[in-house]
Simulated assay, not measured.
Amino acid sequence: MLPSDMPRLSQGAVVLRAFEDRDVALVQSVADDPLIPLITTVPSSGTRDDALAYIARQHDRLTTGAGYSFAIADLATDRAVGSIGLWLRDVDEGRASTGYWVAPDFRRRGYVATALQALTSWALSLDGIDRVQLYVEPWNEGSWRAAESCAYQREGLLRSWQKIGDERKDMYMYSVLRPKH
């Protein structure tokens, strides 16, 4: 059985925690990012009300069974720098998926790789999840290098896999499997 409460996970200099209203500034800071609002539900408006609605949607993910949406925060300051989720659409098949983003001011500092390692270790410790997968655009070298540093293996290129904005995009598929005993 999957946890019904939002866990707080920490690893290295990162903590994964529930989004809080004080994270509004982070959400607002990525509203004009050229990619984040296209591939997530982050609002492009940048208004406080829309950012608060985004945070409320993140809490709803757990209550609806869609998954766990975490703020990635710096362990020392508890300041949110990004988001990572564990999505459960295919959990009946033993599969979960993940996705993440980090605000531009906090990129290239190891937050994604550390957050992904914490999330992956936790996910594979849960009964019923044998595989965690993620999709990365081929140009996004930072993202796929983070995945590879966490033992995710590239399984192939999915051509025209996902619509982003008005265009269909290719995606690399990565996965990590529960270790066999």
Rank of each mutant, 00 (worst) to 15 (best):
M1P: 14
M1A: 14
L2G: 10
S4I: 05
D5R: 06
M6P: 14
M6A: 11
Q11L: 13
Q11H: 15
V15E: 14
L16Q: 12
L16R: 06
L16D: 14
L16K: 08
R17N: 12
F19D: 06
E20H: 10
A25V: 07
L26I: 03
V27A: 10
S29F: 08
A31I: 01
D32A: 13
P34M: 01
I39G: 08
T41H: 05
S44Y: 02
T47P: 11
R48Q: 09
A51C: 10
L52T: 05
A53G: 13
I55N: 06
I55A: 09
R57L: 12
Q58I: 01
Q58L: 12
D60L: 11
T64K: 03
A66M: 04
A66N: 04
A66W: 00
I72V: 15
A73T: 10
A73P: 12
D74Y: 03
G82T: 08
I84N: 05
I84R: 02
G85F: 01
G85E: 10
V91Y: 02
T98K: 01
W101L: 11
A103T: 07
F106T: 02
R107W: 02
T114L: 02
L116M: 13
T120C: 04
T120W: 00
S121T: 14
I129F: 03
V136C: 13
P138Q: 02
W139Q: 15
N140Q: 07
N140G: 04
N140Y: 04
G142R: 08
S143D: 11
A146M: 13
S149V: 08
C150I: 08
Q153C: 11
R154H: 04
G156F: 09
L157N: 07
R159W: 01
I164R: 06
G165V: 09
D166E: 15
R168T: 04
K169H: 15
D170Y: 08
M173Q: 15
